[in-house]
Design a protein around this nucleic acid. Structure first.
Lengths: 108, 108
DNA sequence: CCTCTTGTTTCTAATTTTGGAAACATTGCA
DNA sequence: TGCAATGTTTCCAAAATTAGAAACAAGAGG
């Protein structure tokens, strides 16, 4: 595998890594409703603002969200269009496969 | 957030975690072509068979691939329909956002 | 200027993930 | 039965991730 191809796989993995945490998916779900500032999200999620800030920073680095300063607030908003479909697909796939496995077990 | 909702987010995160590694995305890409046995994939990827086995095991646990024994071989095949679209979406989204950022930088 | 609010960064400890080697299990075949 | 090939599991050390506390930065308003 050449270096360029390797970078492409690393790039894709980076995006999935950004989604590989329950809290970050929760935050994306909230940002789907409307833009939120960090303090609001932290309170809503029941986590420390530094933790929320770091999660949001990861999502931003992956290009999934963007932020904008408004006075002392930093407002985050969703920018990636297909992310939520991906999350829905993820859940659907897992549940579907689990059901299939259960069917197999029951058929034995 | 109630416990059930929390489990749903954890479930989604589990799936993304399975995708959050360059090698595993590479393996999925190979399995998109056709079913492969572990030794073939390990040789193709240039990694130890135990490492390949463990990566494939993670993908199977996430319901993304399935395996079948054929003599001494274990053949893995792709089962999740939307995974590859997700990977393509991931790459597209990242590249698009990077381009946007570059445009912003150039516009300054 | 001082203080409060909001966010980010830094530091640390705990947890998780990873790769490689070795041991082990299973199957096919001479 | 003995042996080779294939996969999985186990063990270990290195690397990465995470949460929380504390320090730090930036702006708003008196």
């Amino acid at each position: 595998m050449d270096e360029r191809t390797q970078r492409r796989y690393a790039l894709k993995a980076e995006m999935f890594k950004a989604l590989a945490h329950p809290m970050r998916i929760y935050l994306l779900d909230k940002l789907k409703e409307r833009p939120w500032c960090v303090c609001e999200l932290a309170a809503e999620a029941g986590i420390d603002k530094s933790v929320a800030s770091k999660h949001l920073s990861q999502l931003k680095a992956a290009g999934l969200v963007d932020d904008e300063k408004r006075g002392t607030l930093v407002v985050y908003r969703l920018v990636a269009p297909c992310v939520l479909d991906m999350a829905a697909c993820a859940e659907g796939t897992i549940l579907e496969n689990r059901r299939k496995k259960l069917d197999v077990v029951q058929a034995l």
